[in-house]
Amino acid sequence: MKRLWTPAWIARHVAMVVLVTTFLGLGWWQVSRAAAGNAISWGYAVEWPIFAGFVVFVWWREVRHTLRTAAAQDEDAAAPASADHRGEAAGPDGVTAADAIDAKPSRPGIRRPVRVARVGAGPGADDAELAAYNRYLSWLNANPGAKPGDYPG
């Protein structure tokens, strides 16, 4: 919660309230104009509250995003075991995994899926070692009771 009361966040809260009151006020002004006989104002009277709602939506989304990022960081700090792979990335000059986490810019808790480029062996590229291993596997499969040491090949 403390993260929502930084100066930048207070500015955002204030901006949200100012924008929403202004937009709703403009909407109300258009309603009064429409009631006074300016039929075209009915359209604007509908548009302004929608813009106000959009402001609230973006504000709420940012709040949730901040809270979720904060929760994810707390989890990371509480579970050092999950930081094993980060420890590998730590430099030799005594940089700990926790330092590395703190140094990272805040990121959303969702990461991209890992993609590994794999080159498929073509039908023409016969690997002698691979063929031998496959023969060994098929032998094991054909002789369920046999131990690997019994393989004659």
């Binding site: 075209i40 359209g43 604007y44 548009e47 929608i50 813009f51 959009f54 973006v58």
Partner: peptide, 20 residues
């Protein structure tokens, strides 16, 4: 102004959604 102005308001909403 009356016709295009109204249309612009609603198109701008679509613009906001696309930009978002």
């Amino acid at each position: 102004v009356e016709t295009v102005g109204q249309a612009h308001g609603f198109l701008y909403m679509v613009y906001l959604v696309a930009a978002f």
